[in-house]
Design a protein around this nucleic acid. Structure first.
Ligand SMILES: [Mn+2]
Ligand SMILES: [Mn+2]
Ligand SMILES: [Mn+2]
Ligand SMILES: [Mn+2]
Lengths: 218, 218
DNA sequence: ATATATTTTTAGGTTAATCTAAAAATTATT
DNA sequence: AATAATTTTTAGATTAACCTAAAAATATAT
């Protein structure tokens, strides 16, 4: 039996250390979980005892393959529910994360299997993140950050790094969505801002924005 | 802030004492919650302090109007999710209760509002129980137990008292579903069994079954 | 009305998840 | 290499939800 809190820690370790393979420091987990380092120490001891994590004192924590498969299962549920909320219940992409944080903990194999089928086996969530299939396999489209993309080429938006409501609303306001195509006209060396041509209009994007938008060459 | 456990106690008190109006004894709640009487005493003190329940030592517990509206909200969610599972995800009516027990605690006003619309504002769940609307109003069809229905008349099945998987599977096996019509041919005084004509076949139903099937005159 | 049985509450403990404060280990700086 | 700063762990408390066992109240039976 695994508790909701344990699931959330496992997910955090997965996201912080490249799919849970890299060691993550106690403080890093504490920040992500909005809790204190001492609480994290307690919990990663427990996760380690239960076989979900590898932990050596003062050396940080990583996931075992058992822990990794738990993490992937939760992520699968999170992203499928996000698709449900957008595709079926008309939520916008900036309203879904908090609800999915709750729904991802519902335990029922049949539920997630049927939901997957009902949604027609989506491969990506509304933020462009890949949805692991029932076996844990994830298709990774090769995407780069807009800040890393060269001037002159044409790209399409395929994902976001930050999926906070604020950032997503900024994109909405500027009519940038997944699938939107644009051309990189100019990169200002002084502040690393990027001028793009999108929807037949020039738009200047700050480095911070460019650092949170995933694109791929079109 | 209300915890999941508090919600479950409130729901239990609601179901045990006619919509939470009647006083319910500590032991009754303990049995329903599969816990000990001492734990119940602790919890109903807390519910009372938080304004969800009225409690006097040794006198049992009932719900305040605040508690009642919490209960109705949870029941609304439970039943809407049950409709979702059956109508959209192809669950059968005997597989949904446990999942709905989890889903009923998801907190999002928009979610339940949109789900209601997505399901086309259903008024009854797959077991024939009424679904409270957003204001808490519930339509109650006047139904009686098959065991109370007179011989000779024709009835349709409109609900179940017991919604355990075992009972529901029995009904499936005998091709009895919500909306199924039948005629009461005979009631055996010795064991109170009931002979009905259903799907053009005679079927003898034990008193226990007849005590768990709601019908209405057709 | 008294004794017996049952129900309910209280007292005191446990576990999971958190916290603060202090100690120990590690890392960075002179 | 020694000292200072930072990170991590330990020790000891707290809270929610539960438990057992004993005490108190209520209900039932003689
Ligand atoms: Mn999300
Ligand atoms: Mn997402
Ligand atoms: Mn149910
Ligand atoms: Mn139901």
């Amino acid at each position: 039996m695994i508790t909701l809190t344990e699931e959330n820690y496992i997910k955090a370790i997965y996201h912080l250390g490249k799919q849970g393979v890299n060691n993550v420091s106690t403080n890093t987990v504490a920040k992500e979980m909005e809790t204190k380092a001492s609480s994290v120490t307690d919990m990663i001891k427990k996760l380690s005892e239960k076989g979900y994590a590898d932990y050596k004192k003062y050396k940080g924590v990583s996931l075992t393959s058992k822990g990794r498969s738990v993490a992937i299962g939760i992520i699968r549920k999170h992203r499928l529910w996000e698709v449900f909320l957008v595709d079926k219940l008309n939520f916008s992409w900036d309203e879904i994360h908090e609800v999915a944080e709750q729904l991802e903990h519902i335990k029922s194999d049949k539920l997630i299997k049927q939901l997957d089928a009902f949604l027609d086996f989506p491969t990506h969530d509304p933020h462009g993140d890949p949805i692991p299939d029932a076996t844990g396999y994830m298709t990774s489209i090769d995407k780069i950050l807009l800040s890393q993309a060269p001037v002159g080429d044409t790209f399409i938006c395929v994902g976001v790094q930050d999926s906070s409501s604020e950032f997503l609303k900024y994109l909405d306001k500027n009519k940038i969505a997944l699938g939107t195509a644009f051309k990189i006209l100019y990169k200002e060396p002084f502040d690393n801002s990027v001028t793009i041509l999108v929807n037949n209009k020039e738009l200047i994007i700050s480095n911070m924005i460019a650092n949170n938008l995933f694109v791929k060459k079109s």
